[in-house]
Design a protein around this nucleic acid. Structure first.
Length: 412
RNA sequence: AGCCCGUUCGCUGA
């Protein structure tokens, strides 16, 4: 069984769910009964590669076959519920945990708190949190993060202080959670303030801290602060961190400081598709589409394959700046290259047409997108509605607005 | 035998 498990785990971890499953079945044909480790390997494999439904199926099947889950099983299945925001499934798992008398240890407790808050039920998360007898930093962080992500900055801060009163020292994640919460809700000032305090208190920022805080600077359009943060990074090991480098490029790009962005980009020890995309976006968003295209080609010469975001970035750049035709051409090219347009690609083109008064064409694309089986989201709808509004076609705008709600999409 | 248990993190559309 151990050897079978090793094989299954190997395939499952690397996204070969089918192959793993074949071995999983084969071992049963050969008269071996998968144990909890075999099941966990399968479930975790599916979970990691975005096949949440399959993970759930296996979880309940495991139940039926009377194999007792352990805490690895429980935490990975709760993670799936969290990432799918599947509250009902998550509750079923929770109920099952209680029913089977499973020990609610810290890791399961934290996973439950995360599951409930990612599923939007902060009250349930709090209840789990309150019922835990022992609380470590991870559990506190999970709860604080729940509030912070929901925009309840005050409650998050209260807990942040309370954890310290109860003798649990905030770790770097606690600070990061607080900072990210402020940034995500447009409260960059407070994020920067916490960033200062954390250093006064002797806590060293890590890559995540810097990434969040740089995003905050970009949102605040605070170039000076961004440069100040950059200065903190320079000369440290983080300077050669890929994600930090990308966050710097992104910050400078968004603030239109393309020379700085380019300088950071060129100094990075290596670039991946995300850093290329950030750099390309800098040019594309500011209307330098030729330069963006040049980089796009250069990226490929250097052996980096454009992903759907790369294409979307270019398309959006062209579409926003009055080059709908070229955008459409790129849209065709991306499909030839085997990259499937997603809702963002379609919306970028639709928005381009709509903004420039070509609402009929936008509408045509809008229905084509649905024929292809893609469901417009609130951004797609808003793009087309605001096109009508801007071009004094209020009746059509109102019409679309109603249709959107019939489709069950809430205005934002 | 189930990667570092569970919490935070980089690129694109209105």
């Amino acid at each position: 069984v151990v050897s079978w498990n090793a094989i299954i785990a190997g395939y499952a971890q690397h996204g070969y769910g089918e192959e793993a499953y074949e071995f999983f079945q084969q071992m049963q044909q050969e008269g071996m009964k998968p144990n909890v480790v075999s099941w966990n390997a399968m479930i975790a494999g599916y979970a990691r590669h975005g096949h949440g439904e399959k993970a759930f199926e296996l979880f309940w099947e495991m139940e039926r076959m009377n194999v007792k889950p352990n805490k690895f099983t429980i935490t990975s299945i709760l993670k799936v519920s969290a990432s799918l925001a599947a509250l009902e499934e998550g509750k079923r798992v929770h109920a099952h945990i209680i029913k089977s008398g499973f020990d609610l240890d810290l890791s399961v407790g934290s996973a439950l708190v995360v599951m409930y808050s990612k599923c939007g039920s902060i009250e349930d998360a709090r209840q789990v949190f309150d019922n835990m007898r022992i609380r470590d930093a991870v559990l506190w962080n999970a709860m604080i993060s729940g509030y912070a992500q929901h925009g309840c900055a005050e409650e998050a801060f209260k807990l942040f202080q309370q954890m310290q009163k109860e003798g649990v020292k905030p770790d770097v994640v606690s600070w990061n959670v607080m900072i990210a919460g402020y940034v995500q809700h447009g409260r960059g000032e407070e994020a920067l303030e916490l960033f200062r305090v954390m250093q006064q208190e002797g806590m060293k920022p890590d890559s995540v801290t810097f990434i969040s805080i740089l995003k905050g600077c970009a949102c605040l359009a605070a170039l000076e602060e961004g440069k100040w943060v950059h200065a903190h990074i320079s000369g440290t090991l983080l300077e050669s961190n890929l994600s930090v480098g990308t966050a710097l490029v992104d910050m400078y790009s968004k603030l239109g400081s393309l020379e700085d962005a380019r300088a950071v980009f060129n100094k990075m020890p290596k670039q991946d598709v995300v850093s290329w995309n950030a750099m390309i976006a800098g040019y594309a968003m500011h209307g330098h589409v030729k330069e963006a295209l040049k980089l796009f080609q250069q990226m490929q010469w250097e052996g980096v394959k454009p992903n759907v975001v790369s294409w979307n970035t270019l398309i959006a750049g062209y579409a926003q700046h009055g080059h709908e035709k070229e955008a459409l051409e790129l849209f065709r090219q991306m499909q030839q290259e085997g990259v499937k347009p997603d809702v963002v690609s379609w919306t970028a083109i639709i928005a381009g047409y709509a903004q420039h008064g070509r609402c009929d064409e936008a509408l045509e694309l809008f229905s084509q997108m649905q024929q292809k089986g893609l469901k417009p989201d609130v951004v797609s709808w808003t793009a087309i509605i605001s096109g009508y509004v801007q071009h004094a076609q209020s009746e059509e705008a109102l019409n679309m607005f109603q249709q959107m709600q019939w489709e069950g999409i809430k205005p934002s």
